[in-house]
Design a protein around this nucleic acid. Structure first.
Length: 398
DNA sequence: TCTGGGGTCCTACATCGT
DNA sequence: TCTGACGATGTAGGACCC
């Protein structure tokens, strides 16, 4: 074996260890509940000022939202990430609800990744709390099956952030990710090629990164429950049921085959903003409110693009009806833009192509086909406003 | 009282030019 | 001139991930 990869998962908020705490829900809603108890501060920073028992309990939480994360003490009750607040409240009514402070999370995330890069520079970003690391050329990376380097990383992360993490070391990213789940929250797991049958095959197919609830249900219907059972399938049967690419990929995954490299740099493909309303809105009866939200979303996307130095030319909208059905509409321009007014204008046209008789619970705006701003030639009308005459390329749309 | 927000990637299908 | 194959591109939807 010549390469080692590690998947590292951060344990958030270890200072809450032992207490049933969930983090999530609507930021505003938690803050509102918090304001009733104290007007000192908002967000996670409030932890420093406000006693924990003054935060709302799950049973007192009213409204929409899902849980971002939960402490292990809360997970004992069956509460977990992505669970609706209402359902969680039934399982653990006395859990403390804290708001998410994304700025704080990003700060820790950066520190966590910097701590790793100082030791092992080839790092692939997989979100705020996960990375893949290529151990191959790190001095001592192969020692003790990778365990020495993993320990070093854990120590360094703890020193720089006060956070613990779990690490999986394996010959590729696929297995490393699974391995990192073995020994949570602060463990190290080494899985080698020879361990496939004993450590990986007994696991449920769902443990494969890329097999979600839909594929899992479909596999179950084919009487395939474990990764070992998946590996035993004729590849043709998987291709028949899941299509060429997915079928072949599943077969490879079950056999622990994964040749994807650790990718240290990537460009964003799209940027979007979306929001779920406090209550479902009707296109006609709530026209004003909807229009304001829509414009704000466009402005935010434009801000994001400008701040990060990108322009895009595919403008899209997404909406979710009260029955949770979603629809999207896209429109591609001939020129790139990052202008809020133009985005609003094109997104408005896209919105007109969608039936609006049913109530809406979510509205989103997306800009795709991105390009670095300095690489794009902007049209003369780049600064045009919605009130101004239609830009020249608009006549291509209708 | 279900089900966030920000992304990526894949698939299917329509359209268009060659 | 008509027809079909094929690739490129755009669009819509859906699965999945953190």
């Amino acid at each position: 074996m010549d390469a080692f990869f590690a998947s590292i998962e951060l344990l958030r908020y270890p200072q809450l260890k032992g207490l049933p705490v969930v983090i999530g829900g609507g930021r505003r809603r938690v803050d509102e509940a918090l304001q009733k108890a104290s007007d000192v501060a908002q967000g996670e920073r409030a932890l420093r000022f406000i006693p924990l028992d003054e935060f709302p309990r799950l049973k007192d939480y009213v409204g929409r939202g899902v849980i971002t994360t939960a402490t292990y003490a809360a997970r004992q009750f069956g509460v977990g990430s992505a669970m609706g607040m209402m359902k969680a409240a039934k399982l653990c009514p006395d859990a403390i609800v804290l708001p998410v402070d994304f700025d704080e999370v990003r700060k820790y995330s950066r520190a966590f990744k910097e701590a790793i890069r100082e030791v092992a520079p080839l790092v692939e970003d997989r979100g705020v709390d996960e990375v893949y690391v290529d151990f191959t050329d790190v001095p001592g990376g192969q020692r003790d099956g990778g365990r020495s380097l993993a320990r070093l990383l854990q120590r360094s992360i703890l020193e720089k952030t006060g956070l613990t993490c779990s690490i999986g070391v394996a010959p590729n990213k696929l297995i490393a990710k699974m391995a990192s789940e073995f020994n949570k929250p602060n463990g190290i797991s080494i899985v080698q090629e020879a361990d496939l049958q004993t450590m990986i095959w007994p696991l449920a197919c769902r443990k494969i990164n890329g097999i979600g609830p839909k594929s899992d249900a479909k596999l179950a219907a084919l009487n395939i429950q474990t990764i070992g059972e998946l590996a035993a399938q004729e590849i043709g049967r998987l291709i028949d049921n899941f299509g060429q690419a997915t079928g072949a990929w599943m077969h490879d995954a079950a056999w622990g085959r994964d040749t994807r490299p650790v990718v240290t740099e990537s460009e964003p493909v799209s940027m979007s903003r979306e929001t779920t309303f406090e209550r479902d809105l009707h296109a006609v009866r709530d026209k004003t409110e909807l229009g304001e939200v829509f414009t704000r979303l466009c402005e935010k996307v434009a801000e994001d693009l400008q701040r990060k130095g990108y322009v895009g030319k595919t403008i899209g909208i997404k909406l979710r009806y009260d029955n949770f059905q979603s629809v999207t509409r896209d429109q591609t321009l001939t020129h790139y833009t990052a202008d809020a007014k133009i985005i609003r204008q094109i997104a408005g046209l896209a919105l007109k192509r969608v039936p609006l008789t049913q109530k809406l619970r979510l509205l989103g705006v997306r800009v795709g086909t991105l390009l670095k701003a300095e690489e794009a030639t902007l049209p003369a009308s780049a600064g045009a406003t919605a009130e101004e005459p239609v830009p020249p390329y608009m006549d291509q749309l209708f």
